[in-house]
């Protein structure tokens, strides 16, 4: 864990943080920002997920944070290592936009697929999704506050909101 007050999470990255740190990731388009947090211990983790399923990968050695399935598992593991109990975990998600109207191949509707994959995974494990800000056509930057457990969402056109 890093002591800097703002913990930045890059593309396909996963990081955890403790109060008074903030967790943030910038420029989410079709990617999904998944925050899983534990209010009892004031710890949280953030994953910047690009793709819905690791079965899409054509390489054996990849960043686990890239995919919804492996990324969610890894994020939960990191929190369990911090001492969290799975029953205390809650989630917030943001992102999964469709940046462009017409795309093809794996890009087709990728934002929506990412969101569905994360939601399904969290459902299976039994982690409740407290709030979400998903879809649309705009990019988002997000920041999770470990004191208030609010997720701040900034977009270019709609300004700032908290979920």
């Amino acid at each position: 864990m890093n002591n800097c007050s703002q913990v930045k999470v890059g593309i396909a990255d996963i990081k955890t943080a403790k109060q008074p740190q903030m967790l943030m990731t910038s420029g989410l388009g079709s990617c999904v920002g998944l925050v899983i947090y534990d209010e009892t211990l004031s710890v949280a983790g953030l994953a910047h997920i690009m793709l819905p399923d690791s079965s899409l990968s054509r390489q054996n050695d990849f960043k686990v944070g890239k995919f919804a399935d492996t990324g969610t598992d890894e994020l939960i593991n990191l929190l369990l290592k911090e001492g969290s109990k799975i029953t205390n975990l809650k989630a917030k998600i943001a992102g999964g936009a469709q940046m462009f109207k017409t795309t093809s191949g794996n890009k087709l509707n990728i934002g929506n697929k990412n969101v569905l994959a994360v939601e399904e995974k969290l459902n299976q494990i039994g982690i409740p999704i407290v709030s979400k800000d998903i879809g649309g056509h705009n990019g988002r930057s997000i920041e999770f506050n470990l004191e208030t457990f609010k997720l701040k969402i900034r977009t270019v056109y709609q300004g700032v909101s908290f979920i």
Partner: peptide
């Protein structure tokens, strides 16, 4: 060429669209 798209938004959100195909084979 496919149908072109234009947008004004965060560079990260736009650029990652071009990385989707690459991301299944590489980091």
């Amino acid at each position: 060429a496919h149908v072109p798209n234009a947008t004004v938004d965060m560079a990260g959100a736009i650029m990652t669209q071009g990385l989707i195909e690459t991301s299944v084979v590489s980091d």
